[in-house]
């Protein structure tokens, strides 16, 4: 029985006068990986940032549409953004650990949420570093700066950092684009394990990656959602010509 955790309807977004999203309808199932694909500039990141309201930080952005996250309207006036971002975590394209120790990075979200108990923090750090498949590599240097790690390790620490606050959904914006193939595969393996417990929405330019890990794939083109379906169907038997053109590399 699949459970829809997040529903978006008729999502439109304007940067000033420029409409970057023209009405996106897209739903996300619990414990699935959904991949957002499409050519550069089509609005994947923009759409992703709507989901945890990161676009609110950009001046002059207007977002309209329905966002139903576990029955609540994410954009309602009284919706607590801080709370939303604890439930919908985000991992960015560039690994961006804070210039602090690995440990402090991972427990950052808990600390700002007011958790002080050392045992709880230790426990959460260990669990989330294990979930992000980086525990063995860093367990002996938790007090060292996270900036001293390799890019791939940093990105997994960032994933651990997002997991530590136990979100329901994790958004990832091209999480592997700054990494070498080996690190990318490690992250992919991590994501596949994580979907047991989390719902994952990831933007990727790597179509093989989408094919390897995603249950659902959504194809964006210049601010429109062309089609969204099971990954197999999108890759083997797309409904729209644009999709098959993109998949076969005829443009984008």
């Amino acid at each position: 029985m699949v459970n829809t955790i997040l529903k978006t309807k008729n999502v439109k977004l304007k940067y000033g006068d420029f409409e970057a999203l023209h009405g996106i309808d897209l739903d996300f199932n619990q414990n699935e990986i959904t991949a957002l694909i499409g050519p550069s500039g089509c609005g994947k990141s923009t759409y992703l940032r709507c989901l945890n309201r990161m676009n609110d930080l950009i001046d002059g952005v207007t977002v309209t549409g329905d966002f139903d996250f576990q029955g609540a309207d994410v954009y309602a006036d009284d919706y607590d953004i801080v709370d939303l971002r604890k439930q919908i975590g985000m991992v960015f394209q560039q690994p961006n650990p804070f210039p602090m120790s690995i440990y402090d990075n991972v427990v950052y979200g808990l600390r700002v949420a007011g958790v002080r108990d050392k045992a709880t923090l230790d426990e959460a750090a260990q669990t989330s570093l294990k979930q992000a498949a980086i525990w063995d590599e860093v367990k002996n240097k938790l007090d060292q700066s996270a900036l001293a790690l390799s890019g791939g390790q940093q990105q997994r620490v960032c994933i651990a950092r997002a997991l530590a606050v136990s979100p329901d959904i994790i958004l990832l914006d091209e999480p592997t684009s700054a990494l070498d193939p080996h690190s990318s595969r490690q992250i992919e393996a991590t994501l596949l394990q994580l979907k047991e417990k989390y719902t994952i929405i990831t933007v990727t330019h790597n179509l093989q990656q989408a094919a390897r890990i995603a249950d659902k794939t959504a194809f964006f083109l210049s601010g429109d959602l062309i089609e969204a379906a099971d990954t197999k169907q999108i890759f083997m038997n797309p409904e729209h010509k644009e999709t098959s053109d993109f998949i076969t590399g005829r443009f984008g």
């Binding site: 990161m54 709370d83 979200g109 700002v112 950092r161």
Partner: peptide, 27 residues
């Protein structure tokens, strides 16, 4: 202080003041 630090902090559910105090000023 890189913008990334600010976004990362906010995306983890930190308030603006927490972000300023814990990340921006410290960095």
């Amino acid at each position: 202080v890189p913008k990334d630090y600010r976004s990362a902090s906010l995306a983890l559910g930190a308030t603006r003041w927490q972000t300023i105090y814990k990340v921006v000023l410290r960095t």
